[in-house]
Amino acid sequence: MPNYAMVIDLHKCAGCGACAIACKNENNVPEGIYWANYIHRTRGKFPNVRYEFIPTLCNHCEEAPCVKACPVGAMHKDENGLTLHDPSKCIGCKACVVADPYGVIYFNEEKPHEFWYDKEEAIEKITSSGQEMGKNYDVPFPYYNPDRAKTYAGVRPKGVVEKCTMCDHRIKEGKVPYCVYSCPSGARVFGDLDDPNSEVNKLLNQYSYFRLGENFGTKPKVFYIREF
């Protein structure tokens, strides 16, 4: 069984956020929730200033604190080393959210995609409303991606948590996660950590790397190489 991991080359990363936007697109992620996200910071004093950008996502930790914290087994490790979540088991207790040191698990406080149920029209009878648009399509919202529902709730309902699944639905079909596919600068590499010949291992052998929260004891599987 593979042990999936991701390497992000910060030298190649252009800090554009296409990963985070494409993720929303692929996984039907509602407003305010970010399976893929980024951290940025500006250091130094003018004119010696450094701006850094680090794309983030669920680290699919080998020692995942969120899995340990889940009382009902909704948050679990799968056979490929991914940290996955089963919304049908989830009781919405948010123990995983509390245990997660990376802030990548989100709780659906509201009905998701409320925008598409709203009745307001900008200009009456001239422009549409989210609700009217929604009615025209047989899916939760017009650009809804049905592929997501192959392995997870297509849209996660109010009352449960959600997070990055490393696009397990795509992996199953031999594709790479959509953030990897969509990265315009080719900064993301996905592969099997247990395969010595995988591209991720080649990069990890070639460059020194760091992971977020190395000292948490979580053994994250998202690796960063080089500098932004």
Binding site: P140, D147, A149, G154, V155, R156, P157, K158, G159
Partner: peptide, 21 residues
């Protein structure tokens, strides 16, 4: 009002699973 979790989940899923293609 507030729906039980599973019902809410189902409501969404009913719409979404029709179009896997």
């Amino acid at each position: 009002g507030t729906k039980p979790m599973l019902q809410a989940l189902a409501e969404n899923s009913g719409k979404e699973n029709k179009q896997v293609s």
